[in-house]
Structure formats: C-alpha cells, structure tokens
C-alpha cells in the first residue's frame, strides 16, 4: 500500500464511522430503525473491518487461508449478532 491508498482507506473509515454515528443519532428520523438499521450497521462494520484487515493489517496479498480466518471471524461474529437480534424480535 502506498501513502495515497492508505489515506483513502483512512478517509473511507472516517466516513463510515460518521454513517454509524448518524444512524445512532437520527436514524429513526431518517426511517432507519429496527432490523434495517441493524443490518446497515453490521454491513458498515463489515466494510470497515474488511478494509482494516486487508489494507492496514496487510492481508490483501496474502494466502487466502489467513484472510479467510480473520474475515471469517468478522462474518461469524456479524452472523451471531444478527441471529441474536432476530431472536430478540420474536
């Protein structure tokens, strides 16, 4: 990663954080609440986490096994959170 690419990732992460914060502050007024808000928040955190894993941790060019383990963790945790949220709705 060169400095320009790292700065781009940094900027995306900041914008994504702003999006998460906005959903927390005014999500209900924007019509983003309940399950759609939950799914949006998980999607944002997945995008952020994936960028950190690939570009900051430097796993982008590495054998799939390692990327799979860490991104797989992110997917598994997101899935468990979504399942627990769904159970809570019932």
């Amino acid at each position: 990663m060169n400095t320009r690419q790292l700065n781009t990732v940094w900027a995306i992460l900041l914008v994504a954080t702003l999006a998460t914060w906005t959903i927390g502050e005014v999500g209900e007024h924007l019509g983003i609440a309940g399950p759609p808000a939950m799914l949006t928040l998980l999607a944002i955190s997945f995008v952020k986490g994936r960028l950190v894993v690939l570009d900051f941790m430097g796993l982008r060019g590495v054998k799939f096994f390692w990327r799979g383990l860490v991104i797989g963790w992110l997917l598994l945790v997101s899935a468990l959170i979504a399942i627990a949220y769904w159970i809570a709705l019932k």
């Binding site: 955190s45 950190v52 894993v53 941790m57 860490v70 997101s78 959170i81």
Partner: peptide, 14 residues
C-alpha cells in the same frame, strides 16, 4: 482497532 469497529455499533448504537 478491528475489535472496536464491531464493539461500537453493537454496544453503543444497535
């Protein structure tokens, strides 16, 4: 950092 990226929406927002 990665762990906090999951923790913040989970505990503070969702």
């Amino acid at each position: 950092d990665l762990v906090w990226i999951v923790l913040f929406p989970l505990v503070y927002v969702m």
